[in-house]
Simulated assay, not measured.
Amino acid sequence: MVSDFAKALAQMGDRRFQAVLAKGIGLTLALLVAVYLAFVWIIGAFVPDTFTLPLIGEVAWVDNALSIGSFFFMILLSVFLMVPVASAFTGLFLEEVAEAVEDRYYPGLPEVPRQTLWDITMDSLGFLGVIVAANLVALVLYLLLNVAAPVIFWALNGFLLGREYFQLVAMRRLGREGAKAARARHMPKIWLAGALMAVPLSIPVVNLLIPVLGAATFTHLFMRLEGGRAAP
């Protein structure tokens, strides 16, 4: 699986990879900015410019303080949400990455019917919900077992990334049920490959490459493990 990752890394210069990366990060930033602007609007709409407190008198700075505080809150929130949200958006364009990998390394494969936008969107949102919810729950473990937090993070996200990326890649060739069966056959290897993807999640900026690298790596992994079923 290290070779799968190495092949994916070697193809990062591919224009299709870069296009998906740009779209994923761009949509993620746009969403975070939109959430921030909505939060600022809510503050402006519902927090009065001034109000009076007992013993203190008139207070005229609360809305400004909340607006400034919300900016730093969004910066902090983006640290936790950037990667899962980018992963979800990248899932919308996963077929472009998989096709680029197949064109370069596995020519001659039969074409696959494209998934509908609805199915892709639902799968991506499902992935986003699972990874965000799981990491929010894991925050408790991170706080209680702070020494083991990195290992917990890598193990948890390795499982989630491996499970979801393999499923998304395999569905293109085997269908939903076939992908589930393939995932069950190879879960230990999938988890280990996912953990390999999860380690760079701890590195700022580098972690933004993981959605594209993950899609490419798991395309190679799928072809290595299940290529016989995908071939004509």
Rank of each mutant, 00 (worst) to 15 (best):
F73M: 13
L156D: 02
A138L: 10
V130G: 11
P113R: 05
L168R: 15
Y142I: 07
V132I: 15
M171N: 12
F166P: 00
N135S: 05
L128Q: 14
L77N: 08
V59R: 04
A170K: 01
R176L: 13
E164N: 13
A170T: 05
V62K: 03
P150K: 10
A133K: 11
L125N: 05
D63V: 10
L174K: 01
A60D: 14
Q115N: 06
V79M: 07
V147K: 15
N157E: 05
Q115A: 11
F166R: 00
Y142D: 05
A138K: 07
R176S: 14
G126H: 06
T121Y: 06
R173K: 09
G57T: 04
V137G: 07
L81F: 10
R114Q: 13
L66Q: 01
L143E: 15
S124A: 14
L94T: 10
D123W: 11
L128H: 10
L141T: 10
F153E: 07
L143S: 15
L143I: 15
L81N: 06
L109V: 06
L139A: 13
G129F: 08
A170C: 11
L76V: 08
L77Q: 03
D63K: 11
M82W: 06
A86T: 14
I152H: 06
A134F: 02
A65H: 00
G57I: 07
R114I: 04
G175K: 03
D63I: 10
E58D: 11
T116F: 01
V130W: 11
L168H: 15
V79R: 14
F73H: 09
R163S: 15
P107Q: 02
F72P: 00
D103S: 07
F89V: 13
L168F: 15
Y105R: 02
L109H: 03
G175R: 02
M74V: 14
V137M: 13
A149G: 03
V83E: 08
L145N: 07
F153M: 08
I120Q: 14
L174I: 06
A88C: 07
V151D: 04
N146A: 14
G162V: 04
M171T: 13
I120S: 12
V79A: 09
L109M: 07
A65P: 00
